[in-house]
Structures are given as C-alpha cells and as structure tokens.
C-alpha cells in the first residue's frame, strides 16, 4: 500500500517537476569534496566511530568511512559530518 502511495507521489512529483526528496522523503546526500557530507531525511545514526559512521535512511543504510569523523550538527532531519571522508557506501538499498 505504502509502496503504491510512493509510486504515485513519485509520478506526481515528476509531472509537477518537484524534487523527489521533498515529496517522498528520499534521502538527500550532499558531499563537499572529501571534507563534508550533509545527509537530509536520515533515520538516525546506527553506528558512530571516528573512522566509520553508519546512518539509516528510508532506502537503506549509508556507510561513511574515513578518518577524524565528527558529527558537527545532528538534527532530526539533517546530519552534518566533517572529517577526511574516504569512502561512501550504500548498503542494502532497495
């Protein structure tokens, strides 16, 4: 049922030329070089270590590996990570 709703919303967004992240809460990831990652519409921090951060999203898990990783800002909707980002992996994305 929810899947159908999402499909409908996606088609409507496509028709109205609206961004998908605002209509169906898709995660939005903004990477600035290898120094900052901003994740919008996340679903919480699964694991946090200075070398690895795993963040839950609607579509699956996002794994950020690197060094000296810091959660600069943690909000319900937005997460800002800074440090030396080496790898970003999408684990089990639907």
């Amino acid at each position: 049922m929810r899947l159908k709703q999402n499909r409908l919303k996606a088609k409507l967004a496509e028709f109205l030329e609206l961004p998908l992240d605002t209509v169906i809460d898709l995660p939005k990831i903004v990477i600035s070089g290898n120094q900052q990652v901003v994740i919008e519409n996340h679903r919480g921090v699964i694991e946090y270590e200075p070398t690895i951060i795993r963040v839950g999203t609607k579509l699956g898990e996002l794994k950020i590996a690197g060094a000296e990783l810091v959660l600069v800002s943690v909000l319900k909707e937005e997460l800002v990570i800074t440090g030396k980002v080496g790898q970003i992996e999408m684990v089990d994305w639907r």
């Binding site: 919480g44 810091v70 959660l71 600069v72 800002s73 943690v74 319900k76």
Partner: peptide
C-alpha cells in the same frame, strides 16, 4: 534528535 533536541560537535 528524534525528540527535537539539537546536538552539535559530537565527538
């Protein structure tokens, strides 16, 4: 964060 609190500089 789920309850609306703002955290920053989490190390």
């Amino acid at each position: 964060t789920g309850s609306g609190f703002y955290l920053w500089d989490v190390k």
